[in-house]
């Protein structure tokens, strides 16, 4: 991480997710060979905090930008860091096709069910009935569709090698998430294709809660819809338990 003070809201999971990503690169000794791609959204400023070379991508296009870098520098480590609006709404096509081609990159997908940067609008992963500024009476499935489960979706594609869903709201979960990220970059080293790490996270300001409340709410509401755990390991889908 750089010495810049984090500008994320206190209690937000982004800082932890950034931190463990950078720790993994340091532990693997590959930070100098890594290029990160920042999205549009709260983590647009990821490049201020992550102490690696970084390119900021147009909204939703990070997987395509990462493809361009990875294809022309096949020996480097390339990752994208994207939120739910970026990855699962405006950038769905880029996400699906980078996964389908099995680009040798890591996608870190932070899912907090809301558009944080623009002030709490509905996201593709917003839960049914959840109130946001563009679903002020709660998300109605009939007119607004259902929350989209990206990890389950991309796990169906032959190009994904590792798909997992983690969280960073407890020490135990942080350790597990970090382990998953480490495995993802090791996959890149072994040229295994695409690793997709979803991190279910909170947005205490967007959800209008205290940090602790938001973490409790996440466990009670987000996890049933987005259950934690590995979905695809070493190119093989895990049996639904």
């Amino acid at each position: 991480m750089t010495d810049n003070a984090l500008t994320y809201c206190p209690g937000c999971g982004h800082g932890t997710a950034h931190n463990i990503t950078m720790e993994v690169l340091e532990e693997l000794g590959i930070g100098d060979e890594t290029i990160g791609v920042a999205p549009v959204g709260c983590s647009v400023f990821a490049y201020d905090f992550m102490n690696v070379d970084m390119t900021q991508a147009p909204h939703g296009r990070a997987p395509a930008v990462a493809t361009g870098i990875s294809r022309t520098w096949p020996d480097k480590y390339v990752f994208t860091y994207q939120g739910d609006g970026d990855l699962a709404a405006i950038g769905t096509a880029e996400t699906i096709h980078a996964c389908n081609r099995g680009e040798n990159i890591v996608i870190i997908f932070v899912n907090n069910g809301i558009y944080g940067m623009t002030g709490g609008q509905m996201a593709p992963t917003t839960l049914e009935g959840m109130r946001t500024s563009t679903s002020p009476y709660g998300r109605e499935i009939e007119s607004m569709g259902s929350p989209i489960k990206m990890s389950e979706l991309v796990a169906q594609l032959p190009g994904t090698y590792f798909v997992t869903r983690q969280s960073v709201h407890t020490h135990k979960n942080v350790r597990k998430a970090k382990k998953a990220i480490k495995k993802a970059f090791e996959n890149t080293r072994l040229r295994k294709g695409l690793s997709f790490i979803e991190i279910v996270s909170n947005c205490n300001s967007g959800w209008k809660m205290t940090p602790n409340e938001s973490n409790e709410w996440m466990e009670e509401n987000m996890f049933p819809m987005f259950p934690l755990g590995d979905i695809k390991v070493n190119g093989k889908l895990k049996q639904a338990s």
């Binding site: 791609v37 991508a57 395509a64 493809t67 022309t72 096509a93």
Partner: peptide, 19 residues
Amino acid sequence: LQAESEVAAINMVYGAASA
């Protein structure tokens, strides 16, 4: 590489150009 769209193609260009 044949991209999935013109949008993806120009962003692949953006990625490779940034590198």
